[in-house]
Design a protein around this nucleic acid. Structure first.
Ligand SMILES: [Zn+2]
Ligand SMILES: [Zn+2]
Ligand SMILES: [Zn+2]
Ligand SMILES: [Zn+2]
Lengths: 179, 179
DNA sequence: CAGTGATTTGGTATAATGTACCACTTTATT
DNA sequence: AATAAAGTGGTACATTATACCAAATCACTG
């Protein structure tokens, strides 16, 4: 019985998440610079190039924790690069960043968001606040097991997943109840 | 010990799924007619009208277990109604069917699929086969709890969800290994 | 049954998102 | 320097979805 309780606790605690930052007031410059230096390092190690355009697109997507649409990137790129960049170039940069695992796509929003833990193995699970629009990523061992289990019970061999949870983040819940 | 085993089994078994049909050879006419009569009944009870267009769109979406795009519906509608129907009318019908819970939208595919258990409370979880393209819906108690648990541990108040699992269905796994 | 308001549909035009394609430039390799 | 590979510029276009207003149909009332 003791053993059961212990192992349950261990499983319970294995959870990566940036919800503390994404859904609360915080120093976002740290998120941004961490993401950029991560990206530099990641690309160097992989032997690929984080060109100015790719870097600028990543920077724009990381400007907040709200998913950003491709055409919003197109509109804002001149502010960083000083010259207009057309959709195909932006989509090429986005494809690169997706393949490198530096950003994720949120299909229900037709938008993209920076990955807070690129490189480390994790499941793509997003909690998007319907009030403030910010999205946090979470990777929970128990949830992964549950997904894997549900799929295998249906004879389905799970390969990739897209999980978008919508609701109220902690901050917006407080504002809701205080108003 | 016996009690623990039993309750685990009970939780394990609470799972709605149409994967047996969706991912295997079956008499699909039964799926179709069941869906249509369900829809009639559901609409009557709700006091709304399943008009010819709405019914035809539902019928087309239920023609298989593969998600169907809105413009595929537009193209095929003449074969049922005998006259062309333009995109806005199709999208209006789709919006109606979505609101009634008779179909679901799969955002990563920009496509729609019939709900095998409309009316009954269920979570939106789809297993889409990357080989044959068919999508099964599943609603598992344990997965729901796990999602709820993951969200609440991040202080997130879960309201709606979109879960798309991609991989190989049972049938396509066999073909893969036999070839 | 006629009148009236609400719901549904028809149809044009356009918005929003994403891609095919080819020429050109830059970078890496020999 | 020559060559190959990778990346970018730019036009045109494909796909998905919606705004808007007019016409038709339906539901209800007197
Ligand atoms: Zn931040
Ligand atoms: Zn991630
Ligand atoms: Zn079927
Ligand atoms: Zn359903």
């Amino acid at each position: 019985m003791v053993h059961y309780t212990k192992s349950l606790l261990v499983l319970t605690l294995i959870m990566l998440s940036n919800s503390r930052a994404a859904h609360h007031h915080h120093d976002h410059n740290r998120c941004l610079s961490a993401a950029l230096s991560h990206a530099e390092q990641h690309c160097t190690e992989a032997g690929v190039r984080l060109t100015p355009i790719r870097r600028a697109v990543l920077e724009l997507i990381w400007q907040s924790h709200r998913p950003l649409g491709a055409y919003a990137v197109v509109e804002q790129l001149p502010s960083i690069l000083g010259r207009p960049i057309r959709p195909p170039s932006v989509y090429r940069a986005i494809d690169f960043l997706l393949e490198m695992g530096l950003i994720h796509r949120l299909p229900s929003y037709n938008a993209f968001i920076g990955c807070p833990f690129p490189g480390s193995e994790h499941s793509d699970v997003f909690m998007v606040c319907r009030c403030c629009g910010s999205a946090a990523e979470v990777s929970a061992e128990t949830l992964n097991k549950s997904l894997e289990d549900t799929a295998s019970r249906a004879g389905f061999q799970l390969e990739t997943q897209n999980i978008e949870l919508s609701g109220l983040c902690a901050s917006c819940q407080q504002e809701d109840s205080s108003s």
